[in-house]
Every structure is written in structure tokens, then in C-alpha cells.
Design a binder for these strands. Structure first.
Ligand SMILES: [Mn+2]
Ligand SMILES: [Mn+2]
Ligand SMILES: [Zn+2]
Ligand SMILES: [Zn+2]
Lengths: 125, 125
DNA sequence: AATTTAATGCAACAAAGTTGCTTTAACAAA
DNA sequence: TTTGTTAAAGCAACTTTGTTGCATTAAATT
């Protein structure tokens, strides 16, 4: 994957954010005119394929992207994600990995665990 | 909520299915011309509000609807859902409820736990 | 049977994402 | 440094999916 202005800016946006971002949110953050909206879609696809970012599907169906925090050895993204219904923010709860026991005759490729409610910040205010 | 032909047919379709169904899938199952596609959207919204069916957001963002199986006392839907990448079917794995420990300063309203991979049926074939 | 109003049908609209194709620019080789 | 190759970007058109407004229909209550 070539090191283009759009790719660098989008990856930087995701990595500097402490919440998961959608295409629309990334577009809003990027300097106006930095790149076409189609380019954002295409760069995001490539970043996911390249395993440079994680993909989360929010409880409302909107796809969000988050930085790979501790994926140096292995690309892993099995923690819980929290969707705040007040501030509409999705965060990686990196230290909370759920446990569950599916029968062994299921082949597991991917997890998407969403918890929705009200975040600590919105609760005390 | 009034007992209409569309509502009865849609609820029956969901209840008779052993997999979760999307609006598009329900529309394909219903007899042609039974009701307008907009009606399906509106009936589904009401069935969810009325707590007659459960709502699941698949890993691809598509919303699916499943019957309330053991919700006579309480409307609860915290088990895992499995998305098969081969047969493209979403099933409720009713007996597998994940455990996780979020800090108490999170207010939890709703869960959406998806596991994606290959289902037992598709594995041995 | 008459009344009320929830529910439906239909058309138009809106949001979100995709595709085809031309042009641009990253980057490697000469 | 120039040249060639092709991935990536821009742009317009399109598709898909879901929503809204409003007139009409039909459930349910009296
Ligand atoms: Mn995450
Ligand atoms: Mn279920
Ligand atoms: Zn919040
Ligand atoms: Zn399958």
C-alpha cells in the first residue's frame, strides 16, 4: 500500500482518537478538501485489509474504525466495545474480554461484542 | 397495536423461522403483494417496541429480527448470536451467555454479541 | 351502523455506500 | 534525474436501504 496523503491523514486521525470513528466522523475531522469522500471509504477498506486498524460494527449498524493498540505480535480485537447512547461515542474497553463457551463444532473467525448504555462521563453530569 | 394481516404474517414468519431474519428476507418470504415494503419496516419497528420480537445487528450492520423464545417473564436477549459466513445465516445461540465485567460506572442498557465464522452445518459438508 | 384513528399504500425523498472510468502521483527501475 | 508502471484519487453516476408526508383503508370501540 502506497504512502499517500489521504492514507497518512486518515490513519493519523484514527490513531489520535480515543474513540472509534465512522467514515462520516473521519470526513468531518479531516481538513476540508483533503480528499474525496470515496477515497476515505477506499482507504478504510485497505487499512482494515492491511490490518492497520480495527473494524467495529456499532449496535446501530454503523461501521467504526479504531487504532490497533497492542497488536504488534498478533492482530486481536476481542474486547468489548461500549456505545454511549448520550454522547454517541464508541470506545474500546480494551481490558474487558468476555468469556463464553461455544460448542467446538463452530469455527470462530471474528467477534463483535457491543454493549450499549451510558458511559461514566455522561452518568455523572 | 392493531391485529392486522401484515402484522400477523410478519410475526408468524419470524416465529416460524429458526434463524434471525432481515427486512429483506422477510419480504422475500411473505406472499408477493401481501403488503408494501414500507409496511414491513413499520411493523418491525412496532414489534420491537412492543417487545414481541428481538432485534439483532449483524456483524455486517444488517438488522435482523428473531422470535422471543423464553421471554414470558422478562424480555431478555443477552445470549450470543452466530453469523455463518458460508450460508449467511444468523442464529440465536440461546444457551450461550457470555460473562464480562464492566466497571460499575457504566450503565448497561443493551447487549449485541456477535460471533462470526462457519456454522456446524457448513463445516461438515 | 357510525365513529375514531391506527395502519397501510404510494410516491418522493434522503442517507450511505459503490462502481466505472479518467487522471494523478507514488515509487521503482533505468 | 528522468521515465515507466500502476496503485490510488477524483468525479459523476448509480444502487441500495431506509424514511417521510399524505391520502386512503380498515381495525376496533361505541
Ligand atoms: Mn476495540
Ligand atoms: Mn437471539
Ligand atoms: Zn457518553
Ligand atoms: Zn452455515
Amino acid at each position: 500500500m502506497r504512502k499517500t496523503i489521504a492514507k497518512e491523514a486518515i490513519l493519523k486521525t484514527i490513531n489520535e482518537s480515543d474513540t472509534a470513528l465512522s467514515q462520516a466522523e473521519i470526513q468531518a475531522i479531516l481538513p476540508d478538501g483533503l480528499c474525496n469522500r470515496v477515497t476515505i471509504y477506499r482507504v478504510l477498506d485497505r487499512l482494515v485489509e492491511e490490518k492497520s486498524v480495527h473494524q467495529i460494527t456499532n449496535i446501530d449498524g454503523v461501521v467504526k474504525y479504531a487504532n490497533c493498540h497492542s497488536c504488534s505480535t498478533e492482530h486481536k480485537h476481542d474486547h468489548i466495545h461500549f456505545n454511549c447512547e448520550k454522547c454517541n461515542v464508541v470506545t474500546c474497553v480494551e481490558d474487558v474480554e468476555p468469556t463464553f463457551k461455544l460448542p467446538s463444532n463452530y469455527q470462530i473467525n471474528q467477534l463483535n461484542f457491543m454493549v450499549s448504555g451510558v458511559c461514566p462521563d455522561c452518568l455523572d453530569s
